[in-house]
């Protein structure tokens, strides 16, 4: 337990939807993250998966307080982030970094790569000219020293993502939030970046919150998995347990929707194809939010919201009729 780096408890984030002419007088809210709790240990990776609109990105940003959570608690390395003043928070943010999906948008086109990587050091008031640090970081992420004086447009997508990672590493963080870090990359390039994450974790003992919609990628990198649906975690547990023995019907359907790359295995397996699409988070279904698409739903699912419960294989899931 002492090895816990991040603990999130009952986190809620509501967004208010602006009234338009036709939406009536009532103010409406979207509950993007609905009472979510989890923790990450030092040197470990938690994979956060879910479809668009499930709240995984919002959750990642709430953890850093880039978005102010509505309620709930985020503890990082024993500090409660919610009660911190801005200055204290900024000092703590050295230890928590983020890498975004789009390596084209997250680098300033007018700054050299070296300047981009050094920027966090300058912002945090680290003394020195940072050149040695920049060179070390470039080598650490598999680029070369002479790349420092070039501009982002001279690099391919995979290389830019490496620059973004070097920048995130500049302040020796303990936690990096990786928000869809390989989704914009071709598979042959993606593999190199995934290997890099693995190497960095081994070398530096960093923890990752790895947010992605691609389950095969998450399975490859994560120690633990949390599956989100409409703002809630529906299943959480060890990677292997969740993938091999999913107990929530949504997890099961999600896994079965991902095509395998072996055509024989892919065609031989039985699939659960879900009906319909994710409902609007403005007006989520009562009780279990997944019930409108669930083939097991009964009356109780509409009336009573299921809570996360421990299952036989060791994971937690929130379902009245779990798969065994």
């Amino acid at each position: 337990m002492s090895d816990e780096l991040l603990r999130v408890t009952n986190l809620v984030k509501n967004f208010e939807v602006r009234r338009t002419k036709n939406s009536g007088a009532k103010k409406r809210t979207v509950q993007a993250v609905a009472n979510v709790s989890f923790s990450i240990e030092r040197g470990q990776t938690l994979g956060l998966v879910g479809e668009s609109g499930s709240g995984k990105t919002t959750l990642g940003r709430c953890v850093l307080r880039l978005i102010e959570p509505t309620s709930g608690q985020v503890e990082f390395d024993g500090h409660d982030l919610g009660s911190m003043k801005f200055e204290e928070l900024r000092a703590l943010r050295r230890k928590m970094q983020i890498v975004f999906q789009d390596p084209f948008a997250s680098l300033d086109p007018k700054m050299t790569v070296g300047a981009s990587i050094a920027e966090p050091l300058i912002v945090q008031g680290v003394p020195g000219d940072h050149n040695d640090k920049i060179f070390d970081l470039l080598e650490l992420v598999g680029l070369s020293v002479d790349h420092a004086s070039r501009f982002p447009h001279e690099f391919s997508g995979g290389q830019r993502q490496r620059i973004g990672i070097a920048r995130a590493l500049a302040l020796n963080p303990a936690l990096i939030i990786l928000d869809e870090p390989v989704s914009a990359l071709d598979v042959s390039i993606q593999a190199g970046i995934l290997n890099l994450f693995e190497d960095l974790q081994k070398k530096l003992g960093i923890s990752y919150l790895f947010i992605a919609h691609d389950l095969s990628v998450v399975r490859h990198v994560a120690d633990r998995i949390a599956v989100m649906y409409l703002g809630k975690i529906v299943e959480i547990g060890d990677q292997e347990t969740v993938f091999e023995n999913p107990t929530h019907p949504y997890t099961k359907a999600l896994l079965s929707a991902v095509p395998l790359t072996d055509p024989k295995a892919e065609r031989a397996r039985t699939r659960v194809i879900l009906e319909g699409e994710v409902p609007s988070p403005i007006n989520p279904p009562s009780g279990c939010r997944f019930r409108t698409r669930c083939w097991k739903a009964q009356d109780i699912c509409a009336q009573q919201e299921p809570v996360l419960e421990l299952r036989a294989m060791g994971q937690m899931s929130a379902c009245h009729f779990p798969e065994s």
Binding site: Q190, A191, N195, E198, S216, R219, H220, L260, T261, D262
Partner: peptide, 10 residues
């Protein structure tokens, strides 16, 4: 280069 269950390093 595609991640697959049980596959080691990519």
């Amino acid at each position: 280069s595609i991640p697959q269950p049980g596959k080691g390093r990519l």
